[in-house]
Design a protein around this nucleic acid. Structure first.
Lengths: 204, 204
DNA sequence: ACTATTTTGATAGTAAAACTAACAAAGTAG
DNA sequence: CTACTTTGTTAGTTTTACTATCAAAATAGT
């Protein structure tokens, strides 16, 4: 069985749905590769346009600006990850087993077990590690939050928190623990790669 | 007793020491206020120049670019915080008491107990919460790290890790726990303010 | 008090980034 | 075959990020 899955994201993330056209999909695919390669700061729509042989103006028809594109990418990741989580813990009995499964998903690249992904998964994971915080650490968090743009992230957090509560119904800080685990998974990975004195994790 | 303390930071953070002149100190003081007010993305040297009635060119004599200024500011914070930590836990016997003291310091604005600070402490703390990650989440982490620009952060992390080890000498992940606590202190604070569904912390 | 040196201000300029507008060409759908 | 949508092309504006030059002002050394 091979299925191609497409994830429908909040319409406010884009001006024109990038999944709806060839050009849109190229923007996503090469956008991910280029952000990975250059880093978000050095990445521009001009460079992306050259890469995929189109024009800046065409890209601006899909995304208001590069920050929105980043938000789209990481939101896609969180949505896909929640989907993976739901599938992976389905039918498992023990809360602790479910939790371990989730931790594994959080700390590893996406796999194709549930339908193929068009994007470079290494690059995508790398972007999530290196740039995802920039998606909400900005002056327009509140506005973006009102537009529900962080919903997938919050949903996943809620789901993980629910697992913690399943394990221990009396625990008072399930949400904080869930968000801490989600963030730490990334930070520890980043630190292991770049600032090893900040972790005890060697390599992986 | 009133003392004014000045913290000497790595020379590679600046082109000309901002503590060494009136203009330099104005750059820091108003820089902090303006980054706080506008957010790092919207902050520019042009706007800062207008604010303090000087010119862009003059500011560029002190800092290579705004990213370096941010790095200077958060590095200053980490250095000052380490200093506070050392003072605050001095002469305390119980590891657990020391740890609690450190947690308090991490989650509250700086106070003036150890000499006055020239900067707006609320603004500074806010910058650390909202922008400090951008100091290392960039393509030049490794280069900056080689230049020892993150040393104060790593020193503080090492010191906190040492407290954990004092509490439990067999614990294997003291550094990872220390960096997780440092980062989480900020994230949970940010979430409580902007994305409350991600925490259980209400208000404070 | 005079001179040398450093620091700042003023002006001006460039290259790139971050957009927007307008229209023609190409593709697609009814 | 026509209407509509999508893309390409060109061209333009404003802002950011930075550099260069030189004069004025402040400061330090003797």
């Amino acid at each position: 069985m091979e299925l191609k899955l497409s994830i429908r994201l909040n319409e406010k993330l884009y001006l024109r749905d990038p999944e709806s056209s060839e050009l849109g999909r190229r923007i996503l695919k090469s956008g991910i590769e280029l952000i990975h390669k250059l880093g978000f700061e050095a990445f521009t729509f001009k460079k992306l346009a050259e890469e995929i042989h189109t024009t800046e103006a065409s890209i601006y028809r899909y995304f208001e600006n590069k920050h929105r594109l980043l938000l789209y990418i990481v939101t896609w990741y969180w949505s896909y990850l929640e989907y993976q989580v739901v599938f992976n813990i389905n039918n498992l009995a023990e809360p602790i087993t479910k939790i371990k499964r989730v931790l594994h998903l959080l700390t590893h690249e996406l796999d194709d077990s549930l339908g193929t992904v068009d994007f470079d998964k290494k690059a995508l994971f790398n972007i999530v590690i290196n740039e995802s915080n920039k998606a909400y650490l900005s002056k327009d968090v509140d506005e973006n939050n009102s537009a529900l743009l962080f919903k997938p992230y919050k949903d996943l957090c809620g789901r993980i928190a629910a697992l913690f509560l399943e394990y221990n119904p009396n625990y008072k800080y399930a949400r904080s623990l869930a968000s801490t685990v989600m963030e730490s998974a990334h930070f520890q990975y980043f630190f292991a790669q770049h600032l090893p004195r900040l972790t005890d994790a060697k390599g992986k």
